[in-house]
Amino acid sequence: MNTATAKPRLTTSAMIASIAAEGQRTKPAPFGHALVELARSRPEVLGMTADLGKYTDLHIFGAAFPDRYHQMGMAEQLLMGAAAGLAHEGFMPFATTYAVFASRRAYDFIHQTIAEEDLNVKIACALPGLTSGYGPSHQATEDLALFRAMPNMTVIDPCDAHEIEQVVPAMAAHKGPVYMRLLRGHVPLVLDEYDYTFELGKAKVLRDGADVLIVSSGIMTMRALEVAKELEADKVAAAVLHVPTIKPLDTETILREASRTGRMVVVAENHTVVGGLGEAVAGLLLRSGVTPVFRHIGLPDEFLAAGALPTLHDRYGISTSVMTERIKGWL
């Protein structure tokens, strides 16, 4: 161990860390504030958590509506079963925990008590994909694959604070269970500069370009927009198609954009390469006879390391710089 190094070592991101880059524009707790706003006109909306209210921004709802807030203790299976029961009685619970615990520990409870009954439970989960440096226990690398595979479930992977604010009322407007990947704390603000509005089930072109089409969701759309700017400097024109609704997939828009001749299609996701947006898009294209040059950026099918997030994003290929280099190499 070399302890004489002058440079400070990168350390694991703290529990309350934001994924925002230094200097990036952010908005605090967009989910919590949007839920409070929604709840004013929807008395059936309730907030529920499994000892992670403070870490999913749901504490803001709890402070605004203490009598509509249920702290269920650190019991994710109970959280989901009880949410099903409340939905059974006509309420609309928003249940929060970390993505790992909803997808892994509570999966059967969600599958059996919520999805099979098509109940109106909204599940919002922090730390999606690789957004924690704590190692596999906190890295929800397969949540999209699991919830995509669950009948009746709608699956949303929003990009930023601007989008989360719009996703919350859209979840309520949709009848049935929804799983949403949640960004918490100081959440990056990006899409307000793109004249963007979220529509459930719709993919949207955020920028056009003739050489590459990057298809992405969640924070990878933020990365894709940065990558497109970097590629522009190299005279490569990259389009970005943002697909926040993973299920149901906007097949029409994806097929239309992927069919434009001469463009390489790159799917970029903050998720294992197994069973997420990449394989969903690949399957769609193949079934439809659309066969562009296809590349896939995603997390490897392995247990990921612990460490500082910037290091891990570089190592596993989802940082802007590594993505840019890889795409250049493929052209």
Binding site: R9, L10, T11, T12, G133, Y134, G135, A306, G307, A308, T311
Partner: peptide, 8 residues
């Protein structure tokens, strides 16, 4: 808690 450490 640092990169590469045996003590995550």
């Amino acid at each position: 808690g640092s990169d590469g450490s045996r003590l995550p």
